[in-house]
Design a protein around this nucleic acid. Structure first.
Lengths: 160, 160
DNA sequence: AAGGAAATTGAAATTCATTTTCAATATCAT
DNA sequence: ATGATATTGAAAATGAATTTCAATTTCCTT
């Protein structure tokens, strides 16, 4: 099997992690390699617990703490970003430094969809400006029902 | 002293709380009255802990748990809204049912400023539409530096 | 390749905000 | 005033996030 664009990207990111580790006097370990690989190949927004469960299926010897710490490490190295949505759990998403984006979160199935919107970036600037506020970043989360969940049930928004 | 517009508004909200309690077969108590009054007169975004400390100065006999529970009650009655910003503490803001708004949060002093923006509401609709997503609500938080903090320090955004 | 300093690991313990429990007390409809 | 029911507050429980620590692994130096 030939290397896909995706696996090349993952390989590149793993190099980035190695550099980060070496620079900091940290060590590359079997566990970190497995966790990073699993994380980078899994495009969602996982909690430490979820990633631990996924990894634990194949690797009984890797503990939750190590998964947790490796996710923190990935965050520090710029390969992951921490996100907290309304359920208050810390999720980690694979992250390529300059791609700011926001999220659509389904209140029914919990699916998280990323979006980018240039108008939103512009609007942030304008709003901040109105308050003489100097914006560094923002967080926009739209909560509602995704296409699939909308198909299944047609009763959203009805008050009882 | 004559009643100001604000104290009339607070009085109205306290009536709303009383109705809510009566409807639910719940009771009006001295503690709930004090906590609601203190909360409604304090326009910020307080944590249960902060409000407890404020109240505890005057009322040593009111416990944290009661403050906490009363804030939950105020939330259920529609007089308060829970908000969680990036410090992961639950804050409560005084809330009048239909006023959706978003927040500017200062990374230096922690001040929280509310704003409303009609274009943002429209943009939410449009973005959601692009994903066939049915939006119910959203959360927009702009993190940066407020006017005051900008005056004091001029070194934001510099990478080291 | 072996030695050894330093980092890592994983289980268990800790932290800390939040939430629940429970016995004593207060409310309020009758 | 009575009594059924809700409330209170201290303390305990919860649960995610984080830290501790002894055993183990990594990897630099020789």
């Amino acid at each position: 099997m030939q290397k896909s664009a995706k696996s090349l990207e993952v390989a590149g990111k793993k190099e980035q992690l190695k550099s980060f580790l070496k620079e900091g006097g940290l060590k590359s370990t079997r566990q970190r390699d497995i966790i990073a690989t699993e994380f980078l190949n899994n495009k969602g927004h996982v909690t430490a617990e979820e990633l631990y469960r996924i990894i634990n299926r194949k690797h009984k010897d890797i503990g939750f703490t190590t998964v947790y710490r490796t996710l923190k490490l990935l965050t520090r190295s710029g390969l992951a970003a921490e996100r907290v949505f309304s359920d208050n759990l810390t999720r980690y998403e694979s992250f390529s430094s300059e791609d700011h984006h926001d999220h659509l979160i389904c209140l029914n199935c919990g699916s998280i969809t990323e979006f980018k919107n240039e108008k939103l970036e512009k609007l942030q600037e304008k709003i901040a400006d109105d308050f003489s506020f100097h914006p560094m970043t923002h967080k926009m989360e739209i909560y509602g029902y995704c296409m699939e969940c909308n198909k299944q049930t047609s009763k959203h928004g009805e008050q009882t």
